[in-house]
Design a protein around this nucleic acid. Structure first.
Length: 486
DNA sequence: ATGACTGCGCATCAAA
DNA sequence: TTTGATGCGC
DNA sequence: GTCAT
């Protein structure tokens, strides 16, 4: 079902759509139960949940309340007869029970303000003026602070804590972020994002991710087959790309030795391609990497990448401007893109690039697309076979020499095969909890989607970068053992 | 009426 | 270079 | 939103 959403989004034009329109599940009131006896009701609750998520002043507990309700309803094996019936099962209270009753009676639910007189401190002050409920009394201090804090969190890298800190420091809007007094409260990475805050105020849609993908494939002949990381959830804040390169770097074997008596090591994706290769903030010599020279730099000069956050030989992060279509379905030209960037127009997103050796691309795809549970399973299978699986691929323990020997990492299918698994489609490697569906057991075998890749060539390009953000010093990291005297 | 509400993977940063 | 604390994000 | 206070 995720893929259906994908396809629909793709079909849309690239131009921006209002945030509240995208990714909605279409209304579907037919009584055909696609799955389970309460399919329609679950769809309804899912819509309510989405609504709660999209709302300004979003209350995460409200969202979870709907999730709980969905779970409860999904767990029933007979059609729901009344709200009270569900309520008795726990986790569902008055409000949702009433909604269920309204659904059963086939009348539209009007939020009765029986319990709360100050119901809905719903400030729809900005951007989302789709649902004008008439009443906008955002005099309310609480609602106002909630609104600001919520808005600040739209910047990738800024979460609840930082948003609250900023708010209490007097920051009242996204545009305030670039004022020095608030700017200095941010980490370097956050500062970069803050500069584009005004143009990043919604989550990434797959259509956007795809347009970057397309533009990349189209524009850069040298780097082969960029592939949007297929786990990209619609709600994700970044676009993630995987680019295969033709070099054959020395692969770093796992550090520890093999011990069949021990439990398999827990996957540490943090270390993805970062062992001994620091993924540092952009200030140092990362400019001479192939990733930077062959990929980042050309993309920058072509008006796609607009800023760097951090980088290393195998990973990069920064800001990308989503390319747009002009009238007639044509892509903007390079000059147009550059000019848009100069004026800070368009949509900007955080972009991550993984630069992966060809011989390891299958393993890399698995690591990047699998969720933690799935990778744990892969790991333990490898372990049982005396193997080790990591982002490079499969390793075999050589008893005599006491070291790991690299076996294979190029194709996902072969890796799964070696581990005695059927091919698992990327979409099934994570758990999407849509409509209360739970990942029971391992995902089923699915059709093969092939990603053939070919080689890349080398190219230099002399674009220089003028990016470097300076410190927003704060206390971080390991505390001193001996406290400092003031 | 009012407040608490579940917890962890991962990135990041700086001390050790 | 490694480690531990912290915050972000889901 | 729900639930316990």
């Amino acid at each position: 079902m995720l893929s259906v959403v994908l396809r629909q989004t793709w079909a849309c034009s690239i131009t921006r759509t209002p945030p509240h329109v995208r990714l909605r599940l279409g209304p579907r009131h037919s009584s055909t139960s696609t799955s389970g006896p309460n399919y329609d009701l679950i769809q309804l609750l899912t819509r309510y949940k989405a609504e709660a998520e999209a709302s300004d002043a979003r209350n995460p507990y409200k969202v979870r309340a709907y999730e709980r309700a969905i779970k409860v309803v999904a767990g029933m094996d007979e059609p729901v007869r009344s709200g009270g019936q569900v309520k008795r099962l726990g986790g569902v209270g008055d409000r949702i029970a009433k909604r269920i009753d309204a659904f059963i009676a086939n009348v539209s639910y009007v939020p009765t303000n029986t319990t709360q007189k100050t119901q809905r401190s719903h400030t729809s002050a900005v951007a989302d003026n789709g649902s004008d409920d008439g009443k906008d009394e955002h005099k309310d201090k609480g609602a106002c602070s909630q609104y600001v804090i919520h808005a600040l969190q739209l910047v990738p890298g800024i979460g609840r804590t930082r948003a609250e800190t900023l708010y209490h420091a007097g920051c009242t809007s996204l545009s305030d972020l670039i004022k020095p007094e608030f700017f200095d409260l941010l980490t370097p990475a956050q500062q970069i994002c803050a500069r584009f805050a005004g143009c990043m105020n919604s989550t990434v849609t797959l259509e956007e991710a795809e347009s970057v993908h397309v533009a990349l494939a189209f524009l850069s002949s040298h780097a082969t087959r960029p592939d949007t990381s297929r786990r990209n959830q619609p709600s994700s804040n970044d676009v993630t790309l995987l680019i295969v390169h033709p070099f054959e770097p020395a692969l770093k074997p796992p550090k520890d030795s093999y011990d069949s008596a021990q439990k398999p090591p827990k996957p540490r994706p943090t270390q993805f391609y970062a062992v001994g290769d620091t993924f540092v903030h952009f200030s140092q010599n990362v400019h001479n990497t192939a990733l930077f020279l062959d990929v980042v730099s050309p993309l920058e000069s072509r008006g796609l990448i607009v800023a760097n956050i951090s980088g290393g030989p195998q990973r990069w992060r920064g800001i990308v401007r989503i390319p747009e279509c002009v009238e007639g379905g044509e892509w903007e030209g390079r000059a147009e893109r550059l000019s848009q960037i100069r004026d800070q127009r368009g949509d900007y997103r955080r972009l991550g690039i993984f630069f992966v050796p060809k011989q390891c691309q299958g393993a890399a795809r698995i690591v990047l697309t699998g969720d933690i549970e799935f990778l744990r399973d892969v790991n333990s299978r490898a372990h049982r076979l005396g193997l080790r699986f990591d982002e490079y691929g499969l390793w075999k323990w050589i008893e005599g020499e006491g070291k790991w020997e690299f076996l294979y990492g190029e194709s996902e299918e072969v890796i799964f095969g070696e581990l005695g698994m059927d091919y698992v489609h990327p979409a099934r490697r994570n758990f999407t909890f849509l409509s209360g569906e739970r990942p029971r057991g391992r995902p089923k075998k699915n059709s093969v989607d092939d990603q053939s890749t070919d080689s890349a060539c080398n190219r230099r390009s002399g674009v220089d970068l003028v990016e470097t953000a300076q410190p927003g010093r704060r206390k971080r990291g390991r505390p001193r053992k001996v406290p400092l005297q003031e």
